[in-house]
Write a protein that binds this DNA or RNA. Structure first.
Lengths: 157, 157
DNA sequence: CTACTTTCTCAAGTGAACTTGAGGTCAAGA
DNA sequence: TCTTGACCTCAAGTTCACTTGAGAAAGTAG
């Protein structure tokens, strides 16, 4: 419990309990450059307070369906070593909100068309815009296409 | 091009070109029980017309962010070997729409809170409902948490 | 009948986002 | 001093939704 009170830095364990993330996950994010911990002479990771915010942002963005790659891109707009200002965060927030709006819009369009589409027969036609939008162009290569956290639907259960 | 005109059944290749799915993907769905092809005496898969609809439904549901597991659950309400009726599809459509509405609602709530949350400081508090809802309870075990198809955001690009 | 395309099975690979495990270090408390 | 606990690294394992590849059989065209 007694921490190195070196300038208010946090250990990985403290960050884990404050964010709810697993220690291994935080290490992974550090390796991937989503946060960048400084080190003690002994090699232990030390986080600044604003890293908690960064990590919380990652959690939220993930729950909204963004990949770590995209989140990394958003976070690049923040200063890495200095504590970001309110303005820094607001800048990210705006870009993030735009993408979120786009995603919501897409889902709404799909939903609205669903009623007209399912049950009417067009679902079996190539012309149906629902399952044959430009989206599907360039969908090549290996790997998974889409996985969603179970918790997201548990609210609908 | 000339097909076995055996009662209007379709080969896997035909189904692939009509749905835009890869042949390997259709085989995978068959193995996983999302569709169930019958076989010729020689062992080749043969699909009924309504399987195209099933597969299209899978595509749409995936683009909306549902996992194959959930889609399988929805499709279980359809008769496997008989061509489903309009009523069968409408029943699924309703349950599906409800889940979709729930998902949209969640995103909207998150978005609405985002403006008040990011930039205000609460993002760093454990009390913040944004990143610490009940959702995160029971989030254990291994494997990936969330991956999203790139094409979904390309519209926001 | 031969050539060719399509299909088959089964095993292994892929990418994302982590977790798990082995083996080792560091600092504080009894 | 010894032990305990939190931390470290690095390699390998896990899940999902597939793809890729090898080797073989089925069906069709000439």
């Amino acid at each position: 419990m007694a921490t190195i009170r070196t300038q208010g830095l946090l250990t990985i364990g403290e960050v884990a309990s404050r964010t709810g993330l697993a220690v291994s996950a935080i290490r992974y994010y550090d390796d991937e450059g989503l946060v960048s911990a400084r080190r003690t002479p002994g090699g232990k990771r030390m986080f600044i307070r604003s890293d908690i915010r960064r990590l919380s942002f990652i959690l939220i963005a993930q729950q909204m369906g963004f990949s770590l790659e995209e989140i990394r891109a958003q976070l690049k707009q923040l200063p890495l070593e200095r504590t970001p200002t309110k303005r820094d965060w607001e800048k990210i927030s705006r870009g993030f909100r735009a993408r979120l709006d786009a995603r919501i819009g897409m889902l709404e369009r799909l939903r609205d068309r669903l009623d007209g589409c399912i049950g009417c027969g067009c679902l079996s036609l190539d012309a149906c815009k629902l399952y044959n939008p430009d989206d599907r162009a360039g969908r090549t290569g290996t790997g998974p296409r889409l996985v969603v956290q179970k918790s997201i639907e548990s609210s609908a259960e």
